[in-house]
Every structure is written in C-alpha cells, then in structure tokens.
Simulated scan of single mutants.
Amino acid sequence: MNSSRSRKSQLASRRNVLFGGAAAASGLFIAGCTSNESDDDEGGTEQQAPAASEEAGAPVTIGFAGPQADHGWLNAINEQARARAEIYEEVTLEIAEGSNDTATQIGQVEALVNGGVDVLVILPADGVAMTDTALEIMRAGTPVINLDRIFDNPQAYRCWIGGDNYGMGLNAGHFIGEQLRDVENARVVELSGPDNLELTQQRTQGFDDALANYPNITKVARQAAEFTTESGQEVMANLLQAESEFEALWNHDDDQGAGALQAIAQAGRDEFLMVGGAGSRAAMDHIQADDSVLKATVLYPPTMAASAIDLARALGQARGLNGLAEFEIPSSLTLFSAVVSRDNVEQYLPTGFN
C-alpha cells in the first residue's frame, strides 16, 4: 500500500474501484503458464512474464486466503498465486496459511484486511458460509476477488473467477464420443467424485449431455470415489469387476485417477481408453509417453489463481484488461476446460500440477 496516501483517500479510491469509477484503460496480461519449458520440481508454478510493454504501475498489496493444500490441485492453487505475484515488482502478496475450516479462514481474512491490503483474493473453504464475511469486507471498502468456490451473494465479490465443472464433463464426453464414433454399441463407465458435491453433479450432467449426441454410446456404470488415490484404486477395482468389457472410462479427478491406473494395471485391462480430469503433471506425463490407457485429461486449471492475482493487481491499480475495451475488469470469468491429449500435451505440460 502506498504510504503517501491518507487512509481516507485510500478508502475513497477503493470505493471508486468497487463501484465502477473511471479508470485508465491500461493493460493486463491474464493468461496462465504457456511456456513449453518446465521445472519438474515445481510442476504447475512456472509463469510467463507479463507483456513487455506493460508498465509496472502503482504499488499494490494483495491479501491471499487459499485452501489447505491437502490435494494436488489445491496445492497448485497456492503455488500459482505465489509465483504469479513474484513476477510483479510492485505487488506485495500477504498470504494466510491455508485452511479448510470456515471459522479459521474468517479470522485469517479479517487479519489480512486489518493489516491494510488493497485487494483480497479468497478461495473459500465454503463459499456459502464465507459469504457474510466477504460482504462485510466489500462494504467496508476492500474489493474481493472470489476464486472458484463462489459466494452466495454477488455483492460479496467484485469479480469471480473459476473453472467450468459442467464444461469439464461436456468436453470429456465429446472427446470420448469422437473417439468411439465408429464403434457399434460402445459402452462407457464413469468414475466420479463425491456425490454430495455440486461440482460432481455438474461434471456428470455435462458428460451425460455430451453423450446424448452419440446414439451408439451407452453409459453402463457409474461409481463415486473421494478425490484421493486410495479411493480411486478401490472404486476402480470394483468397477472392473462389475464390468467385464467397455470401451471408455471418464474419471473426474487425476489424483483419484492415479489410484484407478493402479487398479487397471493390476487387473491387466487395456481394452478401453481413459480420460482424466483437472490436469495433473503425472497424468500429462502418461499421456505424453502413451504408456497406459490414459489418453487425455480435461483441465480444471489451477492457473486461475495466477489470473486472480492479475485481476487483483489490475483492480488495485484501476486498470482494465488488455484486449478489452472496458475500463474495468469483468465481474466474472469462467475458464475453459481444455482437453489435453497427445496432440497438444507439450503446450500444457508447464501447467500440470504435482
């Protein structure tokens, strides 16, 4: 935060940003990692530098409250935010220790705001439960970037950015459909995430809607795992026992997919193709090597955290997005769920998470 401004002028400036005050149409580079060079020790954190013509702009302090890193994708979210902030010399990133407990996270974000951050980025442990806190922060004059798990009230955030769970299922279904287009009476199975999660339901709905375009394909089985390697192995073993033959498998999550691949190898099955979900580095390595039934994965890109830092920086500097005519950042951004196959895996390897 620029110490030369008074607290009163800071609050006025924030309110202008929150509610659409005029801003200079300056640029923002909002892509994730696209370099074809990767660091195996830091999978998913390599960043592309901002456009060379972009000026640094005014100093901005960004508060980041992310999740507990108990899953590969969640860890990648935290790493993407850290790495992205480091490429901007004028950005200071204040990070709260990740937590899956709502009460703990509320205390963390309140501490960040009381410490004087200009913009707050939150991936909430529970979007609904955190809504009132985010709403209070917005009303007090600190803009909030809501990352992925959405708050229950659009007034609780200035901008939401996240993935497309329905699109994941839709694109997985279309990829499988095209691979099996000429197979008569093709059968597919689905290894989903936990059924109590809305995102699981959205992924399944998208998958089913895509398959409806292929009358030669029937989904013959669906079982739910828990987004862990252990559950993926156990549930996949059950699926293999129940279904003696099928042509394709869609697995919602690459962490549980690692266990599914173990079960598949142990059963000696290879008559089908597998499509994963989220975009882990291990999955991409298998796709590139073409050494298993895994032929593609559908992204739920953790680079959204890097883009959230870009959005927060733009918001704190009253900038718009490079390539858009508007003077302000959008109110929401839904990221595309790209299908990564052997044809394009080189491009996406740097975004793969460990």
Rank of each mutant, 00 (worst) to 15 (best):
L335A: 14
A221H: 12
A76S: 15
Q347S: 08
E198P: 00
S332T: 10
V183F: 04
G21P: 03
T204I: 15
L74Q: 11
D195L: 14
E46A: 12
V235M: 10
E184T: 08
D209H: 11
E226D: 15
M274S: 13
L261P: 00
A85Q: 01
E86W: 03
I161H: 01
S4A: 13
A305S: 15
S3Y: 04
Q155A: 15
G43N: 05
G57I: 06
S99F: 09
D270I: 05
G173P: 04
V91D: 03
A186Y: 01
A25W: 00
T228A: 08
T142P: 02
F175T: 01
T229P: 00
R5G: 02
Q241H: 12
T204A: 14
A325Y: 10
D291T: 10
I329T: 15
I309G: 06
R319I: 09
Q317C: 09
Q202T: 06
V275I: 13
G177C: 07
I95Q: 11
T61W: 03
E271P: 02
L324V: 13
V189W: 03
L170F: 13
A52V: 13
A283L: 05
Q68L: 15
G32R: 03
G44P: 04
A76H: 05
I217R: 02
E86Q: 14
G276Y: 05
P301F: 01
G277T: 08
I176Q: 03
M138G: 03
N251E: 06
M168G: 10
F246E: 06
E90P: 01
A325H: 08
N216I: 09
T229V: 07
